[in-house]
Simulated scan of single mutants.
Amino acid sequence: MSALHILVHRAYVGKAHLALGYARWADYVASEFEMSRARSYQLLGQHEVITALSRAAGTDVSDIVTEKVARDIKPHLAAVSAEVADRSRELGDQDQDQILTVVAEVLNATRRPDADRLNRMPSMAKLRASQARGNSTDLWYTPRTAVAPLLAILPPPPLRVWAHADVRGRSHIVDVLEEAGYDVVCSDLSTGQDFFTFTAAEVEAMGVDVAVTNPPYSVRRRWLAHLVDLGLPFALLVPETGVGEWAFEPLRTAGAEAGLLLLNRRIAFSQRWGERPVGNPPFSSGWVCRGLLPAGQQLVFGEVPATY
């Protein structure tokens, strides 16, 4: 019998939900597999990791790539695949057990980086301390005008939106969405909720339909990768500069549902709540999305109003 991740992958690429008369993938997996959409995306992610590593190793690695391993490896999949391929070539004509041992070593080294690598990674503790001092380069408040174009692609209310780096009363993202009739759930590091600790099961229990925020710049890649793993539709306001580099792997994992809401003018942000936005922004911003853009479109243009 085929593994569950294989069955879900076959159904996804074959658009089985449409063939069986389901309008949405979420309805199909709930009925046919008795699982949530988030769970199905986790299995699709596991399948992607297993396929890439099996190709790199020249042998099936599914026995050692559990869902947990796949989630840990997926943000580094390109680099890990390259290392597995190199190590496997060095072994030459060895038996499968020896190759799997080497693959397991590479996976363990990636999942448990040495102290130097950990020290170089953006630290949520450092972010917390920096934000407490009020001088974090990650803490920039989004103006109302930047949120307005998002209303054109969000499904209409009733919809529960997770503003997952926002505090009610100190976020124009929350203000604009609530004024438009959306039910907004907030979480933020400053109020004790670390985004990276949320699991797909916890998010599903919250009953949210879509995630929206302006993520901390220094951890934007990790943020995007974790959000993809959670399986929710989302919109993240990010700098367009280098987006093809830092967002490439997470967006490729997100697949055809990923895209960009391109804005027609640069966004000026405020570093302190209530202050006027800083003038002459040095870069353009846009909303990186999953599951929100019109079917078949991965690039949509949005107009930023002069005032909102």
Rank of each mutant, 00 (worst) to 15 (best):
L4A: 08
I6P: 06
L7G: 07
V8Q: 07
Y12R: 14
Y12I: 04
Y12C: 09
A16V: 02
D27G: 01
Y28I: 06
S31A: 12
F33R: 01
R39A: 13
Y41L: 13
L43D: 02
T51A: 10
A52E: 10
S54I: 15
A57C: 09
D60A: 09
I64Q: 06
V65F: 06
T66E: 00
R71S: 14
H76E: 10
A82V: 02
E83D: 13
V84C: 05
A85N: 12
R87T: 04
S88R: 06
E90Y: 07
D93T: 15
D95F: 11
L100H: 09
N108H: 13
N108K: 11
T110F: 06
T110G: 03
R111Y: 03
D114H: 01
D116Q: 06
L118H: 03
N119W: 12
S123N: 04
M124H: 14
L127R: 15
R128Y: 15
A129C: 12
S130A: 14
A132I: 11
A132Q: 14
R133A: 15
S136K: 09
D138M: 13
D138T: 12
W140R: 15
W140F: 12
T142M: 01
V147C: 06
A152S: 14
L154W: 00
P156W: 05
P158E: 05
L159H: 05
W162T: 08
A163G: 05
A163M: 02
A163R: 02
A163D: 01
A165Q: 10
D166R: 09
D166N: 12
R168L: 05
D175K: 13
L177Y: 02
G181R: 02
Y182M: 04
Y182C: 06
V184Y: 04
V185T: 05
L189W: 04
T191C: 07
G192E: 01
F195N: 08
F198S: 15
F198Y: 13
T199Q: 09
A200E: 08
A200D: 00
G207H: 06
V208F: 00
V210D: 05
P216C: 03
P216N: 05
R220E: 02
A225F: 07
H226P: 06
V228I: 07
L232C: 04
P233Y: 01
A235M: 05
V238W: 05
V238P: 08
E240N: 11
G244I: 10
A247F: 09
A247E: 08
T253H: 13
T253D: 11
G255H: 08
E257H: 11
E257F: 04
A258G: 04
A258Y: 04
L260M: 14
L260Q: 07
L262N: 13
L263M: 08
G274V: 10
R276L: 12
V278H: 11
N280V: 13
P282F: 11
F283P: 00
V288M: 14
C289W: 04
L292N: 05
P294E: 02
G302T: 09
G302S: 07
P305S: 10
